[in-house]
């Protein structure tokens, strides 16, 4: 089923909207959540909460890309749960976040919150300048928190190529943010 058809089911308040969402995106959402929480039970709960959130948001939301819309929700729910749980074990997403903190500052102050909009806008601009391969690798690593081996396997790249791409793009991102006064 196409994304717009599933979105229509939400708008029509049809319960098959959840079933169709799960059929198309359930595995992907579970993977995203599991990579952050390292727990099947927690990931399952986060995915269920995602569908509930999507149900409550549509209408009035009408996302063009349903996968991106749902992944954004599950990511937010999983991050909240992770922070509440304060996991001891170093998960794959912690490693990804540590890598990215080389170039993106953490935003914990009120001033930081205001700068978040500027930072998001700058990152989107930066992503827009990248070649296709680099952008896909970058988003999969730092937004979807996939491991390097997983990215290499799914995209048909060597792990060396993935690591090299990420290393160079992080450096470029840092240089750009430094020039714009965001770090």
């Amino acid at each position: 089923m196409e994304d717009f058809q599933i979105v229509e089911l939400y708008w029509a308040r049809s319960e098959s909207a959840i079933k169709e969402s799960d059929r198309k995106y359930g595995k992907m959402l579970t993977k995203i959540s599991f990579s952050m929480l390292s727990s099947n039970e927690d990931a399952e709960e986060c995915v269920n909460d995602t569908y509930l959130s999507a149900w409550n948001r549509m209408p009035t939301d009408r996302p063009t890309y349903l996968g991106a819309f749902l992944s954004r929700i599950v990511r937010g729910i999983s991050i909240d749960r992770y922070r509440r749980r304060k996991a001891q074990k170093r998960s794959g997403s912690e490693i990804a976040i540590d890598e990215l903190e080389e170039c993106i500052p953490s935003q914990s102050s009120v001033e930081g919150e205001l700068e978040n909009g500027a930072l998001s806008e700058a990152i989107n601009r930066f992503l827009g300048t990248m070649d296709h391969d680099s952008r896909v690798v970058f988003v999969r690593r730092y937004y979807l928190t996939q491991s390097i081996s997983e990215i290499a396997r799914e995209l048909g790249f060597s792990e060396g190529k993935v690591k090299t791409l990420l290393f160079r793009r992080r450096k470029e991102l840092y240089n750009m943010l430094e020039k714009e006064g965001l770090v």
Partner: peptide, 20 residues
Amino acid sequence: MSGISDEFINEALSYSKKKS
């Protein structure tokens, strides 16, 4: 990274579907 465009997320997700 939370604020990145849906278009870029969809591009990253779609890449694997083509490869499959």
